[in-house]
Design a protein around this nucleic acid. Structure first.
Length: 205
DNA sequence: AATGCGATTCTCT
DNA sequence: GAGAATCGCATTT
């Protein structure tokens, strides 16, 4: 049913990859329990010439090293001192492009996600909390137990990986400006954020 | 060694 | 819509 995507899937520039990742599934195997979420919102970070990217002007440090790695690996970083965000390395080695996963639709493992996010069993969640499980880059990492321990994890492996599913319905892709990069001058207005139209779990309209 | 701030979230208004 | 929480990291001295 779920078919793991191979390495070649990731060998394309981050804008194309960001769109191709929509509707795919992120899976995290935690000691045999597999959490599954459908990717419904992404952003492309285009490397050297992108003022919004951590790799702008080729900045290459211990933190950003994963962005220069083999496509299909995880670039995970800490933001605002308390949240992790996860990216999918794109393009090719040493290019520095990646796709930020901004929102997921929870598919399986809701009980674990609920405990991770709210320390409450799923049945206790209010309607609002249910839609807030994974509708943001920091939130989805919390829900899925994704931290920097998974830095440079291989998405074609068996722990944290990405799949496609046959016979999923078609959907419409909306593009818009990226979120939270007001400092990026002209780059802040590039339409490099993509999401599935009308999906309830998109982080914002 | 010191400084300034962020690819966010939550709460309150 | 605004403000706080919170700390690793990139940059500057």
């Amino acid at each position: 049913m779920y078919k793991k995507l191979n390495r070649n899937f990731y060998k394309k520039n981050a804008i194309i990859l960001a769109k191709d990742l929509l509707g795919k599934y992120l899976l995290h195997n935690i000691n045999g329990e597999v959490l599954i979420g459908k990717i419904v919102e992404t952003e492309a970070y285009m490397g050297y010439f992108d003022k919004g990217a951590h790799t702008y002007k080729g900045r290459r440090t211990k933190r950003t090293e994963a962005m220069y790695g083999e496509p299909g690996h995880a670039y995970i970083y800490l933001i605002y001192g308390m949240y992790d965000c996860i990216n999918v390395v794109a393009a090719a080695k040493d290019i520095g492009q990646a796709v930020l996963i901004r929102a997921l639709e929870p598919i399986k493992g809701l009980e674990v996600m609920s405990l991770n996010r709210f320390n409450e069993p799923f049945k206790n969640l209010k309607r609002r909390q249910i839609t807030n499980l994974t509708n943001g880059p920091g939130k989805l990492c919390r829900a899925f137990g994704i931290t920097r321990e998974l830095y440079y994890e291989d998405f074609t492996g068996d722990c944290l990986y990405i799949c496609e599913k046959k016979d999923d319905p078609e959907f419409e892709v909306v593009e818009s400006k990226r979120v939270g990069i007001d400092y990026a001058e002209e780059a802040k207005d590039y339409p490099w954020r993509f999401y599935i139209k009308d999906n309830v779990y998109v982080s914002r309209l």
